[in-house]
């Protein structure tokens, strides 16, 4: 009976790993507009599979901000929570592979591809949609995270500081962490 249980666990894990790979390949392939374009895709993949709660997903994105690398590294956190170190590894590889393949293709064809006007148009349309997607995520994220005026003030100050003064990114994250430790400590 115990071995039956163990086998079931293993099968479930393999299922998780396969699902992680397939979903994060999609995220990697469609995440236009820089790393932030991946957040809406990661969120929908993660929540629709019930891999993480909304609160933990928000945490995953915050963790991705703490690391020096791109936001896409949040995939590592999600993979780790879903299927341990193996999950972390496959999610990371899956999320970065499509863009690497596209980079290779573009390296050979970009000059020619750029002249195809239809391609230009499709990419501009996609970029417009991604802008809307990220705005939508900012709204839903704000709704789930900001419950008091203190949160609203912090988000607004960060937006203004980032837009107006282009201060070093790490100082924004560090500052928000310090403010959070004081204001949001449970």
């Amino acid at each position: 009976m115990l071995s039956g249980l163990v086998r079931k666990e293993v099968v479930k894990d393999i299922g998780h790993v396969v699902a992680l790979v397939l979903n994060f390949l999609w995220v990697g392939l469609l995440g236009f507009g820089g790393g932030f374009g991946m957040i809406p895709l990661m969120k929908s993949a993660t929540l629709s599979h019930h891999w993480l709660s909304v609160a933990t997903f928000d945490k995953a994105i915050a963790m991705g901000q703490i690391t020096p690398g791109p936001v896409a590294i949040s995939a590592t956190f999600i993979g780790e929570r879903v299927a341990g170190p193996l999950g972390a590894l496959v999610a990371t590889i899956a999320v970065f592979t499509p863009s690497l393949v596209v980079i290779v293709v573009l390296s050979h064809w970009f000059t020619r591809l750029k002249k195809v006007l239809a391609v230009q148009n499709v990419l501009f349309a996609t970029l417009a949609a991604v802008t809307g997607l990220i705005a939508g995520v900012a709204m839903t994220l704000g709704e789930s995270l900001i419950h008091a005026w203190t949160g609203a003030v912090l988000a607004l100050v960060v937006a203004i500081v980032a837009l107006r003064w282009k201060v070093p990114y790490w100082s924004i994250i560090l500052g928000a962490g310090v403010v959070g430790a004081i204001w949001f400590r449970p």
Binding site: F124, L154, V158, A159, G180, R185
Partner: peptide, 30 residues
């Protein structure tokens, strides 16, 4: 609790950073 608070602060900051990203991307959209 300090760590939880700091993380929540960073989560909220992400909302602000996303507003910045939306603005920056929109400037590139025709």
């Amino acid at each position: 609790p300090w760590l939880t608070g700091a993380l929540h602060g960073i989560e909220v900051a992400v909302v602000g950073l996303l507003i910045d990203v939306v603005w920056t991307l929109w400037k590139d959209v025709p």
